[in-house]
Design a protein around this nucleic acid. Structure first.
Lengths: 219, 219
DNA sequence: CCTACCGATCGGTAGG
DNA sequence: CCTACCGATCGGTAGG
């Protein structure tokens, strides 16, 4: 007892440490802090890029020392892969829903445009990383991300081809049609913040008209 | 004379240095080497990003030591600004030509699509930097690049608006039409390398149809 | 063109 | 959660 009191007085920082350990052992508090770190990292990575953002930049932005970050995340790499694989999963899930729905290819394309707009509005910072920062992934997360992206593009292309074969779309080059839609949708996050005059429904309708209108037969 | 001979024998590396100085003082040789460095830098920056590419990486790729690079370029920053401002100038010049030509707004839009395709095929590595790596520019080059990009977008938007007012295009949202065309054209460099089955003329025609077709009145 | 080197900063660990 | 610290690497300079 005496011994403990002496230690506590001698090492006041050790007591703080014990209190910290007790508090953060509550699982949901730990999860919240991790999420704050991930969200802040997404914002910084978007602004400066993954490579140019240091762990000290990130620590400062969340209000702690760099070393403390490692109580919540394993490495800088893990932050990037958590962000990117989480986003990739959203697109994969969305595509799987669209594929299963019993509608025409043209309606599926409208649903996919809505999917892109919805995800980009929800997570603009993370989505901003999907176009270029994924090259900084390493090992298994890199392979997982790449294969999900490839699968998504193949699924989308097949829907366009189905639309052409069903006579709903003109006989355009499917790759060019796919590429036009995807590159526009992949940059939507960057454009959206400048324009807030349009509702979600209006956005979907306008983009569908501009991106798919040119593919339809003249009525 | 004796003195010189002694020095030359004592410092053989110094003789090599003098020979190097004499050779590289020929202005066009120096320009060539600088261009090799710039081209190689564009390739590396594209693959790994500006921040993640070290001057040692670059030196290795051009076959010299890092310190030697600085005989041809001032800094890592200067490489990036030389690449990006050179490319920006090409777009600005192209837009000025288009603006001056006495054709309809719709034909101007076709010319601009051809401009993007042409530049992207000529300098795919440098163009790849224009979408994201320009954020690493500092000071005056950053301002110059930003203002040229802004001016280009404004000029393009006015051509679209003129097309709508002339009755050539439907009354779509000009910003959405502009954004769709630009984001597709800005990613063209990344898509093109995968597809080499199409001629330049076919590419221009297909992209014009897909990107502008949806903006036209139904015939 | 090189060798030798600089101060600054990087991602991350030890340990309380 | 922090302080203290590590080896590695960064962009760039001096000087021949």
């Amino acid at each position: 007892m005496l011994c403990l009191e002496v230690r506590f007085n001698t090492y006041p920082r050790f007591v703080e440490f014990l209190i910290y350990l007790a508090l953060t052992s509550l699982p949901n508090m730990k999860k919240t802090k991790r999420q704050v770190i991930l969200d802040t990292a997404a914002k910084l990575f978007r602004k400066k890029g993954f490579a140019a953002t240091s762990m000290r930049d990130l620590a400062k932005a969340v209000g702690m020392e760099a070393a403390s970050l490692y109580n919540h995340i394993k490495s800088k790499q893990e932050i990037l892969s958590a962000l990117l694989l989480g986003a990739a999963q959203q697109y994969t899930d969305g595509m799987n829903n669209v594929k299963e729905s019993a509608v025409t290819p043209l309606e599926k394309m409208d649903q996919l445009i809505a999917l892109h707009i919805s995800i980009a509005i929800q997570h603009p910072n993370t989505i901003s990383l999907m176009t270029q920062e994924w090259v900084h992934l390493e090992g298994e997360p890199y392979d997982s991300f790449s294969s999900q992206r490839k699968a998504y593009e193949n699924d989308f292309r097949e829907i366009i081809i189905a639309g052409i074969e069903a006579g709903q779309l003109k006989k355009v080059n499917p790759d060019i049609a796919l590429f036009s839609i995807l590159s526009t949708m992949r940059w939507f996050y960057a454009w959206y913040s400048k324009k807030d005059g349009l509702s979600l429904k209006e956005l979907e309708k306008e983009f569908s008209e501009v991106l798919i209108g040119g593919l339809k037969h003249k009525a």
